[in-house]
């Protein structure tokens, strides 16, 4: 059994049929543009503020792109029972779920490129540590995707997937230090912030883009990787418990 054939075909089909469709691509373009524009105008400090805004816009683009798409596509396939085809395939369960989530991870990383390219046109990004930046956007995409998977397992209808996604996403936008420093939040909320994976991703991005980070970059990367592992393990456990019970 050539497992890679199954893996690439699941990924390829998802990219073709769900992610690289014009409505999704336009969402991937418009959403970061709107957020970037909003905060740029709000800051009132001209092009100099772009480097400070970029990490937040990148993180929010990935978060919304991945969680929306994965939760909706998995719920859709579960509802029309085509997901059963995947569960019946002779592929290790972990590999199957990695293949199923890889499309969303790629989509999230593509979403992140939009604000980066815009910022590159408007300001000097020469100081950015691109290897850490790439690792950060990859890990943010992975953790957000697995969060979307966890949401997909918890719901049975597509509208529930959207609602539950927003329940997590909107608070994360304000609690994870994307646009407002965590230090400015009330202390109880700060405690919640450090329980959310995006906090570490945002800290990484702030660190690589303009050097303002609270934790060492290696520690952020490690914690974010551990969040990815924990969310994936929890999602698989939940799928086995609820869908293959």
């Amino acid at each position: 059994m050539k497992l890679w054939i199954a893996f690439w075909n699941i990924l390829g089909k998802d990219l073709r049929t769900y992610y690289l469709k014009p409505p999704n691509l336009s969402w991937g373009l418009i959403f970061p543009l709107a957020w970037g524009g909003m905060f740029f105008i709000k800051s009132g400090s001209g092009l100099g503020s772009i480097a400070e805004l970029l990490p937040g816009v990148v993180a929010v683009s990935i978060l919304f792109g991945t969680t929306s798409m994965l939760a909706v596509t998995v719920t859709f396939e579960k509802k029309n029972r085509s997901f059963e085809r995947l569960l019946l395939a002779p592929i290790p369960f972990e590999l199957l779920m990695l293949a199923k989530t890889s499309g969303a991870i790629c989509f999230g990383m593509l979403n992140a490129l939009v604000p980066v390219l815009m910022a590159a046109l408007l300001t000097d990004l020469a100081g950015v540590n691109w290897s850490v930046f790439t690792a950060a956007i990859f890990l943010i995409a992975v953790s957000s995707t697995f969060l979307g998977l966890l949401i997909a397992v918890a719901v049975s209808e597509i509208f529930e997937a959207q609602t539950l996604s927003n329940f997590f996403r909107f608070p994360m936008m304000f609690l994870c230090g994307l646009f407002f420093p965590i230090a400015l939040l009330p202390v109880p909320l700060q405690a919640i912030s450090w329980l959310l994976p995006l906090t570490y991703g945002a800290d990484l991005l702030h660190g690589t883009v303009h050097g303002s980070h609270r934790l060492p970059l290696a520690l952020n990367l490690t914690i974010l990787a551990l969040f990815c592992l924990a969310l994936f393990t929890l999602s698989l456990h939940q799928i086995r418990r609820r869908w293959i019970a």
């Binding site: 050539k2 199954a6 075909n9 089909k13 085809r85 395939a89 002779p90």
Partner: peptide, 10 residues
């Protein structure tokens, strides 16, 4: 073709 790929057919 997709279903065949799930079973590793080239």
């Amino acid at each position: 073709c997709f279903c065949a790929a799930l079973y590793g057919l080239g």
